[in-house]
Design a protein around this nucleic acid. Structure first.
Length: 572
RNA sequence: GCGCUCGUAGCUCAGUUGGAUAGAGCAUCUGCCUUCUAAGCAGAUGGUCGUGGGUUCGAUUCCCGCCGAGCGCACCA
């Protein structure tokens, strides 16, 4: 919070001292080490360099006219030209007081809200969601939450895979061997069984192959019976996906699957040919790319059998979204392997609609690996189903809670296990840099020590426990009594002020790990405070002050976890 | 062959316009529960940031070469 005020005033001075400087680079950031101060700006060194000026001299010039004495001690110029700001305790206390009164929670809503479409999760009909969907789903959802909290208008659209060649096989299986009882009990398992069964004989059995092709053609040409079955497969799948999303606390504004765009595909392809972007090659309709891209192979728009593929669908989807919601940005959250596809998609779209004013971002992420460093699968090489994975997380969490706190009722332990188990899965997915592959490790994820959801949730329960005990003895928090005297109180308070920076950093770079690390530090600083500063045993004035500090730390921790899609619990 | 990403402590990983002595967790070792949940806290040990050059006042970060790993490159999505 304070860094924004300091930054704005610093920018004012730079504008006067160096009129042609790019003020967007004049940023105030937390110091890497508290001994330098609380906030710093390194911008003047870069500005001096561009102009071949002495950086310290420029710094002195700027600082001479810079008055931030309302919030800071005298500014220090250090080293090659760092500006170090040390905030006054009074200024920190004032921000805490306004937060306590509910005027803000250490972040500001964006002054320039954008409309952002976030495309994430996108499971395939007739297949259970599995580990491959975890990152897109959890990462995408947390980005949505962060953007919304900052005041942006977000549209979420689950672009499910409800069309494609797999339906030929599924229809054959459905008609030949559907077990209604199995279907009612576990629709996705039954559809998966049918698919596997047909698929197994597909390569060797010419008859099956022909049947599958015929069923697909028949579906695509509007055969009533096949359409009916297809719709039933979609309905059942959506119901099952809905159960998983409910467990994860995720909802979508729209579910417009690939099939929604079928009516547009031919026109899209024709238009691309008409304007000279697409051409025929080896029987297919394709788009070649400029030599400078280095992409030798073209993207296929229409296969030689006339069918469209996902580049075409994605182009139609893009058009529809722009027309329907006029977003300033569309964000696709998918795995790293689709980088080339999205680069090509964006390239084609830019050529197709050069004047479109929208930013297109592919937010990609790495793979989830098993303990041995290879892609995470079951022992038999199958994908691990998301539902089963969440079950195991809850079971493991339940064992942990039961061991640590056997006196709680079973009902309460089950609820805690749910929050902790789901939270642990989410946190372990959001903590690593999204672009790196990470190893899925149950023990690490649900470890009672280290940077885990468990640690953050435990810190939260300690805060809440202090609050409950205080209420029992009639002690109340008072923000007016707030005084930050001990180092651990002041350090904790200053960290609360940085909450907004971490949320903004997360939202602007689509990196939830920034917020995870902020919250881990917050929980650590609270624990230090908790060790060093008795709350309930303190004298009245101090007790009221510390209760207020606890309350604020609790609010920020809860809000931060909420951005990550993680619920909190009062006890554990 | 071309392209993308990566190589940081024994292990798993952070490292936010290039910035100040490179950080965390785990593991190992040492302390702290008659005190608000010890699922905690305090401290110690541990790194030529793959390697060789270059740009810079300053490089884990930017550029180039080399070594090693993963992934992707015409009709699946």
């Amino acid at each position: 919070m304070l860094e924004k005020l300091i930054q704005s005033r610093l920018q004012d001075r730079v504008r006067i001292t160096v009129p042609d400087a790019n003020l967007a680079t004049v940023l105030v950031r937390p110091c890497p080490d508290l001994k330098f101060g609380d906030y710093q700006s390194n911008a003047l060194m870069a500005i001096a360099k561009e102009r071949k000026r002495n950086p310290r001299q420029l710094a002195e010039e700027v600082v001479a006219g810079l008055d931030v004495s309302e919030w800071c001690e005298p500014i220090e110029i250090a080293g090659a030209g760092f500006l170090n700001f040390r905030v006054k305790t009074n200024a920190v206390t004032d921000v805490l007081k306004s937060a306590y009164r509910g005027e803000h929670l250490f972040f500001e809503r964006s002054a320039t809200p954008r409309t952002v479409i976030v495309d994430f999760s996108s499971p395939n009909v007739a297949k259970p969601m599995h580990v491959g969907h975890i990152r897109s789903t959890i990462l995408g959802d947390s980005l949505v939450r962060a953007l919304r909290l900052l005041g942006h208008h977000v549209v979420t659209d689950n672009h499910i895979g409800d069309w494609g060649t797999q339906f030929g096989k599924l229809l054959v299986g459905w008609k030949k061997d559907l077990d209604r009882t199995n279907l009612e009990r576990d629709p996705l398992a039954e559809m998966g069984r049918l698919y596997k069964q047909v698929n197994a004989s597909f390569e060797t059995d010419e008859e099956i192959k022909t049947q599958a092709r015929q069923e697909l053609v028949s579906l695509q040409s509007g055969d009533e019976e096949n359409l009916k079955i297809w719709r039933e497969m979609i309905d059942l799948s959506l119901q099952e996906f809905g159960k998983v999303y409910l467990r994860l606390g995720i909802r979508f504004d729209h579910v417009l699957g690939e099939s929604f765009y079928n009516p547009q595909l031919k026109a899209v392809a024709k238009n691309l040919v008409d304007v000279g972007i697409a051409q025929e090659s080896e029987g297919a309709t394709v788009v070649f790319f400029d030599e400078s891209t280095g992409w030798k192979d073209p993207a296929i728009i229409l296969k030689s059998d006339g069918g469209a593929n996902y580049t075409t669908t994605d182009l139609a989807t893009l058009e529809y979204r722009l027309k329907t919601w006029q977003p300033s940005e569309i964000v696709y959250v998918t795995d790293a392997r689709q980088q080339l596809h999205f680069q090509q998609l964006f390239d084609i779209y830019r050529r197709w609609h050069p004047s479109a004013d929208v930013s297109l971002s592919h937010i990609w992420f790495g793979m989830i690996l098993g303990p041995d460093g290879t892609p995470f699968k079951t022992r038999t090489g199958e994908n691990i189903e998301l539902n089963a994975l969440l079950n195991e997380a809850e079971e493991r969490a339940l064992a942990s809670v039961t061991e640590k706190n056997p006196d709680l009722s079973e009902k309460e332990r089950l609820e805690i296990a749910r929050v902790v188990g789901i939270g642990a899965v989410k946190y372990s997915d959001l903590l690593p840099n999204r672009q790196s592959d990470y190893r899925f490790d149950w023990d690490k994820m649900l470890a009672l020590t280290g940077n885990t959801a468990v640690y953050l949730l435990y810190a939260y329960t300690r805060i809440r426990s202090v609050g409950r005990k205080a209420a029992e003895v009639g002690a109340t928090a008072s923000v007016e009594a707030l005084q930050l005297t001990l180092p651990s109180e002041l350090t904790l308070a200053k960290h609360l002020l940085r909450f907004g920076l971490s949320v903004e950093a997360m939202a602007s770079e689509y990196r939830p790990n920034y917020l995870c690390n902020y919250l881990f530090e917050l929980a650590g600083l609270f624990s230090q405070f908790y060790e060093n500063c008795p709350v309930l045993k303190a004298e009245a004035q101090e007790r009221a002050s510390r209760l207020a500090l606890c309350e604020l730390a609790g609010r920020v921790l809860k809000q931060g976890l909420e951005i990550l899609g993680i619920e909190t619990t009062e006890r554990m």
